[in-house]
Each structure stands twice: as structure tokens, then as C-alpha cells.
């Protein structure tokens, strides 16, 4: 039924979450569970790869807002990478680029984790 899934990958200290499908009010819980799992494993350098994310609703965006503060407080970050243009537009309309690192490529994002943060 659910046309959304989260895949787990690692790149060094960075925990990569591969989102696939459509992230909306019904599927938001899956991403929440994924991020909670990362927190529990104490892997707080979270990189969300949106290459296969076809759609995101406001409820989906809410998930990022819900956890970003906690993750940053524990010394990590949630960065978002490789978004489809249409999905990026949704992030952009709300001003998410002001709040999150949204990077075009996964490699760039991984590199940004290791680089000293400027903000």
C-alpha cells in the first residue's frame, strides 16, 4: 500500500537515508521512525538523499522540522541532498534553504559534514 520507503546507508560517520516514493501525511511516520532509529544509534550526521523522492507534502516537511533541533543539539545535523527540481521547489517555497543545508549532490553533502560548519 505504502508507496514510500526509507533505505539506510552509511558513508563514514554519515548516516544516509535514501527516500523513495511519496512522502505525505500517511508515510511521514516512516521517516520519523527512521530518524528516531538514527538518534537511538547515536548516528546524528544524517543525510537525506531525495534522488528518488517524487513528492513531498507539508506533513512530510514537518518531519524535518520536528527533529532538526534535537539532532543539532546532540551535535549532528540533517542535510538534504539530490532533490528533484519539483520537490526542491516545495522546500524552497517555504524557505527551507534558510534552515537546512540543501545540497545538489550527495557527495557534496557528505563533504560538507566533514568540513567545519560556518553557521
Amino acid at each position: 500500500m505504502s508507496n514510500f520507503s526509507v533505505g539506510f546507508r552509511s558513508s563514514g560517520a554519515v548516516q544516509i537515508l535514501d527516500l523513495q516514493g511519496e512522502l505525505d501525511a500517511h508515510t511521514a511516520a516512516e521517516l520519523e521512525a527512521a530518524i528516531q532509529k538514527c538518534q537511538k544509534d547515536n548516528r546524528v550526521h544524517i543525510l537525506v538523499n531525495g534522488a528518488n523522492l517524487m513528492y513531498i507534502s507539508s506533513a512530510g516537511l514537518g518531519v524535518f522540522m520536528a527533529y532538526i533541533e534535537e539532532v543539532r543539539e546532540s551535535g549532528g545535523d540533517i542535510k538534504i541532498a539530490a532533490l528533484q527540481p519539483k520537490v526542491f521547489n516545495v522546500f524552497d517555497l517555504l524557505g527551507f534553504p534558510m534552515l537546512f543545508d540543501i545540497i545538489e549532490t550527495e557527495e557534496g553533502a557528505v563533504a560538507k559534514f566533514s568540513a567545519p560548519t560556518s553557521d
Partner: peptide, 8 residues
């Protein structure tokens, strides 16, 4: 507002 809720 809850942390995961926002209004445009």
C-alpha cells in the same frame, strides 16, 4: 504550534 507544524 507543534514543532513539526507550520503555516504558510
Amino acid at each position: 504550534l507543534d514543532r513539526n507544524v507550520f503555516i504558510s
